Computed example of a mutant assay.
Amino acid sequence: MYTTINEEGILNNYASEPQIYYAEYPNQEQQNTYKIQGAIATLFVTALILVALGVS
């Protein structure tokens, strides 16, 4: 932690910054997993909407 003191005696604490790294593009297996998760989420939301319409 980095601390400074100004002329009035007030302390300022600064958090240490983490290392910066660049994200890597997902490989084909990860892309397929995301597609499956998206399809399941779409089906789930569609089912919720249909149930809500059916109940009302």
Results as ranks from 00 to 15, higher is better:
residue 53 L to R: 05
residue 8 E to N: 12
residue 13 N to D: 08
residue 48 L to V: 08
residue 35 K to C: 06
residue 25 Y to D: 03
residue 48 L to Y: 02
residue 34 Y to M: 14
residue 46 T to R: 05
residue 15 A to T: 14
residue 18 P to F: 04
residue 20 I to Y: 13
residue 17 E to W: 04
residue 27 N to A: 03
residue 12 N to Q: 11
residue 9 G to Y: 01
residue 35 K to M: 12
residue 20 I to M: 06
residue 33 T to D: 12
residue 36 I to K: 11
residue 39 A to H: 12
residue 23 A to Y: 05
residue 32 N to A: 13
residue 24 E to Q: 15
residue 4 T to G: 02
residue 39 A to W: 05
residue 24 E to K: 10
residue 28 Q to E: 15
residue 41 A to E: 06
residue 28 Q to D: 15
residue 45 V to E: 03
residue 56 S to N: 10
residue 4 T to V: 05
residue 10 I to W: 03
residue 10 I to T: 10
residue 14 Y to Q: 12
residue 49 I to R: 02
residue 19 Q to M: 09
residue 18 P to Q: 03
residue 54 G to A: 01
residue 49 I to A: 09
residue 54 G to L: 00
residue 29 E to C: 03
residue 24 E to A: 12
residue 13 N to E: 14
residue 38 G to C: 04
residue 56 S to L: 13
residue 5 I to C: 05
residue 1 M to Q: 06
residue 22 Y to R: 07
residue 16 S to A: 14
residue 13 N to K: 15
residue 9 G to W: 00
residue 10 I to E: 11
residue 55 V to D: 04
residue 29 E to L: 09
residue 34 Y to S: 12
residue 48 L to Q: 08
residue 18 P to Y: 00
residue 37 Q to C: 05
residue 38 G to Q: 08
residue 24 E to H: 12
residue 28 Q to T: 14
residue 42 T to F: 07
residue 48 L to G: 05
residue 37 Q to M: 13
residue 2 Y to E: 12
residue 16 S to C: 07
residue 10 I to P: 01
residue 49 I to G: 07
residue 33 T to I: 10
residue 48 L to T: 07
residue 4 T to K: 02
residue 33 T to Q: 15
residue 40 I to Y: 03
residue 31 Q to T: 00
residue 52 A to S: 09
residue 49 I to W: 01
residue 20 I to L: 08
residue 1 M to A: 10
residue 22 Y to I: 10
residue 41 A to V: 02
residue 3 T to V: 12
residue 36 I to N: 11
residue 26 P to C: 02
residue 10 I to K: 13
residue 27 N to Q: 07
residue 17 E to S: 11
residue 8 E to F: 13
residue 6 N to Y: 01
residue 54 G to H: 00
residue 35 K to G: 03
residue 49 I to Y: 03
residue 2 Y to I: 06
residue 46 T to F: 06
residue 52 A to D: 03
residue 14 Y to N: 08
residue 29 E to N: 05
residue 3 T to Q: 08
residue 11 L to T: 10
residue 43 L to T: 09
residue 21 Y to A: 14
residue 29 E to Y: 08
residue 20 I to A: 09
residue 50 L to I: 06
residue 11 L to Y: 09
residue 40 I to D: 02
residue 18 P to R: 02
residue 2 Y to F: 14
residue 48 L to H: 02
residue 11 L to P: 00
residue 19 Q to A: 11
residue 29 E to M: 08
residue 5 I to Q: 02
residue 12 N to A: 09
residue 26 P to K: 01
residue 34 Y to F: 13
residue 42 T to W: 07
residue 50 L to M: 06
residue 45 V to G: 01
residue 10 I to H: 08
residue 28 Q to A: 15
residue 10 I to V: 13
residue 5 I to T: 09
residue 55 V to N: 03
residue 16 S to D: 15
residue 5 I to P: 01
residue 34 Y to N: 14
residue 37 Q to Y: 11
residue 5 I to L: 15
residue 49 I to H: 05
